[in-house]
Nucleic acid binder design. Sequence first.
DNA 1: CATAGATTGTGAATTATTTCACAATCTTAT
DNA 2: ATAAGATTGTGAAATAATTCACAATCTATG
Lengths: 205, 205
Amino acid sequence: MKKHIPEKTVARLLLYYRYLYFLLQQGTKNISSKSLADMVEIKDSQVRKDLSYFGKLGGQGAGYDVLALRDMIAKVLDIGQITNVCIIGMGGLGSALASYKGFEALGFKVAAVFDNAANKVGHRLRGHTCLDSKELSKVVAEKDLKVAILTVPGEAAQKTSIALEQARVKAILNFTPVKLSLSKNIKIRNIDLAMELKTLSFFVK
Amino acid sequence: MKKHIPEKTVARLLLYYRYLYFLLQQGTKNISSKSLADMVEIKDSQVRKDLSYFGKLGGQGAGYDVLALRDMIAKVLDIGQITNVCIIGMGGLGSALASYKGFEALGFKVAAVFDNAANKVGHRLRGHTCLDSKELSKVVAEKDLKVAILTVPGEAAQKTSIALEQARVKAILNFTPVKLSLSKNIKIRNIDLAMELKTLSFFVK
DNA sequence: CATAGATTGTGAATTATTTCACAATCTTAT
DNA sequence: ATAAGATTGTGAAATAATTCACAATCTATG
């Protein structure tokens, strides 16, 4: 039952979670895989396959209990637990993410923000006091940070990522368009905004 | 030869492009699929398969001509052409994207930014004068905008996306965590930042 | 100009993901 | 209590994406 779970399944769990949350507020107690699938615009069998990774949850013939399902997903995804993250690079994007409400809603807390520019370090930015990147190791250890959001300029990306690895960060959400070369121990997820925009516009001709 | 091109291939083309650009600056004239693949950390066969969608480009036995390959990709992806886009929702994220350098580098130009808040409309934000969302249709027509970046709050997302469709926008890069329900004529690409962060941290335990 | 070594382009094989289809079993109605 | 209808969980089938493997053919060298 607990074999390898595809990333796509994890991503969809979160979509389900949001709809279940909404359904609960509406007072809906029960839902079928078909209804949930329709909301997300996927096939019902996909919903059932995704959920099947986590054991028997619905009754055959009956649907799923909305509350139980939401709680299961919350547990699997650690929603409700506060997860501290840090942001490195307080440019436009980093600053925006430092106060991004969508992170809070899922239990992420920006616990530290870093930059190396003299005009930023020590100053208040979006509710956070910007720390010097030199303090990375110290702060990561102190606050037991496992996940970092990398929003430095591309030129500084590889160098900064090495500092993050040395600071014992376990995962990096990389917003730079640079392929980071690090050991296998550190998990990287790339978000390349320009690439997304290009890929979108490619199919619009 | 010109059959359906997977989105993943398009995304990788851009990665290749960036490395080719770099190689050209270095003065490298020729490259093999293996070397290019190593830079991107994928298999060489993947590179060749991706490129094969666009005809014969390399010589068997020889590698690829860096300049020719870069130009081919630039042409396929319309890099060099200016593509005007607009941003709807001048919150933190929208403002950051309005001055995001990564877009410029690929020929995207933010030609208009919109919001509906009185304290923003008419004001200068990141080098753009914020327009009233009511003017969407007019401005989209005037500037022939085909692609919009949606960064409004989730609550306003569906409503705003309908306005975008009515304004005859062809594609939306959707940063809200809301599933937009529009006709098939409009292409949507979703970037769910919180989901990305959650998916990343799921695999870090 | 012939041979050795390198590297492409592409069908075939493999792997991953999605969808189908149906037995199992729950709910509801009579 | 039983039958009719709904809906799950899951192997099997289908589809999509990646990787293999090799004939074709280029370059370089003697």
